[in-house]
Design a protein around this nucleic acid. Sequence first.
DNA 1: GCCAACGTTGGC
DNA 2: GCCAACGTTGGC
Length: 141
Amino acid sequence: MALFIFKTEPSECAFADLSPSKPTQWDGVANPGARAHLRTCREGDEVFIYHTGDEKAIVGLARVVGSPYEDPKQKGLNDAGQPKAPVVDLVAVKAVPKPVSLAAVKADAKFKDFALVKQARLSVMPVPAAIEKALRKLAGL
DNA sequence: GCCAACGTTGGC
DNA sequence: GCCAACGTTGGC
């Protein structure tokens, strides 16, 4: 079971907009690297929702429902025969007890190679197994 | 197929 | 509001 981080503008699709029961389609991912990560999502994977903008913090935990599929608004396959614009459905699990700010992640040397601080403009990324525990702990999970 | 110019994201 | 990072586009 994998853990991911999805970044979002809270004004676009905030964690609070996700429902615990009715899956929300997570679309609009354009960056090729982010899309590649999105294609690796599987049923039951967990997703930290990170708010950009003024908050800059991991605020919630969600869960992947089903498998990635083609964005109905952008159909088509890439060269590898995969959906060109993959989307996944998410349901809310819960708000994290302790939001993890970007500043807190940056301040901890354990996370210095983490994509969240290293790679700008990546809106979907996996959380490496090596730091998963530390990140969960920071979030109070 | 290279690379300069441009656009967008997102932190500061 | 600025600017660094980085993807994309288009001229050659």
